[in-house]
Design a protein around this nucleic acid. Sequence first.
DNA 1: CAACAGTTTAGAATTATTATAATGTAGATT
DNA 2: AATCTACATTATAATAATTCTAAACTGTTG
Lengths: 142, 142
Amino acid sequence: MTKNCNFIEKLREVGLRPTKQRIKICEVLYNREKTFHFTINDLVKMISEKMNEKISLATVYNTVHAFEKKGYLKEISIDSHKSYFDTNTSAHHHFFDEDTHELIDCDESDIDKINIRKNITGKKINSVEVLVRVASDNQTQK
Amino acid sequence: MTKNCNFIEKLREVGLRPTKQRIKICEVLYNREKTFHFTINDLVKMISEKMNEKISLATVYNTVHAFEKKGYLKEISIDSHKSYFDTNTSAHHHFFDEDTHELIDCDESDIDKINIRKNITGKKINSVEVLVRVASDNQTQK
DNA sequence: CAACAGTTTAGAATTATTATAATGTAGATT
DNA sequence: AATCTACATTATAATAATTCTAAACTGTTG
């Protein structure tokens, strides 16, 4: 169990003020064994239900985006009009379960390294993301 | 230049009533040399500007989704809270230019076939999409 | 051409997100 | 420790994308 003072230091290191709210969000996001995926809505629920603290929706948005900018979180685009975030910030790919809308990490060994042979002139590659959409066998394909 | 009666037949084939609005949308989307990418907003503009016809926003949404369900269009998720559609419905990958928000098709030869070694139990793979995010060399990475 | 199911429409409702402006607070300065 | 200041938080309003609704309309079938 990481202590709060570690979060305080961590936040300071990247130049974010360790406010009550940011520390609370750190606790919810990073005080756990495994990395996970969430939407802003999930996060708000976690904070307001599990820990009984009031936090403004705007603060959650601000903080999550601040964390993303600083590399604490990665945003994943799957569903138009819903943002998923991942506490696993390393380069990795995803399965998306279209039945349950669940996002599942790909093991590194599950997909070969993607080799891009040609790029757009004058541009650099920021990221290469693979999304494998899956659904029940009996389900009609989306 | 495909004639309208072809669109009528095409729509009938998949069980969509060939209404004025659907035919108009077909014209805008498919009466062209190359496939292309668009947002609902783009499409509404194209219809209302290029051709001077009134069409309800709701109809555009309905029709685009009907087309997608029937395999006339492919939806591409890139940006949370904006839906991109592609008139190229074959399996292919994309570059996304983060400077201009432009979506560019990958040539088939630009990326090796992706090999998924393991899947989620009881699920079938619906699609495998690669998204290569690019930006100007001088730009800070997102 | 009558009947009906599917479609379109304008506008209201919903959902996700961002902006605003007042209030609060962390951390530096005294 | 009191003060200062820039950054954060908050509640709420605004915006944007999308979906819903209920009434009017229109292909299609018989």
